[in-house]
Write a protein that binds this DNA or RNA. Structure first.
Lengths: 226, 226
DNA sequence: CCTCACGCGATTGTCAACAAAACGTAAAAC
DNA sequence: GTTTTACGTTTTGTTGACAATCGCGTGAGG
């Protein structure tokens, strides 16, 4: 009954969320060695729950920990970012295919409305790269959950997207091609509405592949540096 | 006792490994509610490291934990197992494609020799389903690492394979088609040797899809029950 | 001047006790 | 007889202190 949403039921969960967002936003720089006591009085908790949260973060690949040498935020290279997009390509392709078979008409309609809202945001507030990124995230989020594939959604939402968002913050509006991405999103939703799983998979893979090539190009041009 | 005292650098790592194998082998039944103190004197450690290990297991999806209600081993339905194979299909397909581009000649040669050993094992010890499963695991393991895609290998080896092995133990030799699988393995390795990434991906996807259909058929026939 | 070893400090890993919340039981009220 | 509520027990979440290990600075030797 009582759902005080902001209240994490346990301190360890709280610490986990705080640490995760701190890593994603870059508040904790990659490669930075962080001491436990330092984290303790930063987030105002004790070492017990903290260590539990650190274990979870480590298991998710956001931290690396050497036995008695402390933990440090994972630092990833440009190549690894590209590999991440390759994984997204096949996994979100699968998600799109299954979503075409399993999403309800209601969900698809809501997704279309979401795209309308995104379009308005792009037209009106041209510079709001952050909200564009959030819109993009929302789109992929809905398809992942719409696949009705529990483990797939868990891996995408609980692992890959956090990694990608980490880079997003770091590279600041890496996407940079809002109109094109929106058009691709529309085509994907059309395929979903027609229940054409194969086409949805193909379009989603091409969409993510295009995003990857876009980032890769910018990195090679030196516009983006990691 | 049953654990070879491999001095893991930390007690939490030890607990993590023990718990993980206990879950995979079915020593801890799915859906079983397990108390912390019970685990403590079973593995002879205290609650501090144990909770850290539990956090990691939960993050990997092998445990589910409700705030003050304890942890229980994850129980998965037949549908979820099928979904797991769908994920494997696309991810290992990607791994095979990248492995074709990146494995060294040496590694591919070693893989061929591994298949020779598997063939001998299948011919000689016909009934040793366990070793066949291990051989299969070895094959997929090598390709995952051969992809040189760190995150991909991490997700396959650290997440999916443990899930699949959990089912393997539970269903006891679910595979059941050693000769056919070996043939498919050989074709995949041939594609790797020719550096034909596309073909390797196609064959790997078909290989896993066949395994999935095999299990699905047996479940529908009532031969296997989850 | 460089290298290696030793000891000190700091940090991590571990433990046992305290507090809080949930589940089960039982009794009382309707 | 059924439901609800209150209490006690059990289990989880948390805390602070103790012990083990590593990194680093200093000093001695080559």
């Amino acid at each position: 009954m009582n759902q005080p949403i902001i209240q994490s039921s346990t301190r360890a969960d709280e610490a986990f969320d705080c640490l995760q967002t701190a890593i994603i936003t870059g508040e904790l720089a990659p490669g930075e060695k962080i001491g436990e006591l330092e984290l303790c009085n930063r987030f105002e908790l004790t070492r017990g729950p903290l260590r539990e949260a650190l274990g979870r973060l480590e298991s998710r690949g956001l931290l690396v920990r050497r036995p008695h040498a402390g933990v440090k935020v994972v630092s990833v290279s440009a190549e690894e970012l590209m590999e991440l997009y390759r994984i997204r390509e096949v996994m979100e392709g699968l998600a799109a295919r299954q979503a075409a078979e399993r999403m309800t008409d209601e969900e698809i309609r809501a997704l279309q409305e979401t795209l309308d809202a995104h379009e308005k945001m792009i037209e009106e507030a041209k510079g709001q790269a952050y909200y564009q990124a959030e819109g993009d995230y929302d789109f992929h989020h809905r398809i992942a959950t719409g696949s009705r594939n529990t483990k797939l959604a868990q891996m995408l939402l609980g692992d890959l997207y956090y990694m990608v968002r980490m880079y997003r913050y770091r590279l600041s509006t890496s996407a940079g091609r809002p109109h094109m991405a929106l058009g691709e999103h529309r085509h994907i939703v059309e395929a979903l509405a027609r229940r054409d799983g194969e086409l949805a998979e193909f379009l989603m893979k091409r969409h993510i592949n295009a995003a990857r090539q876009n980032i890769e190009k910018k990195i090679k041009e030196g516009v983006l540096t990691i």
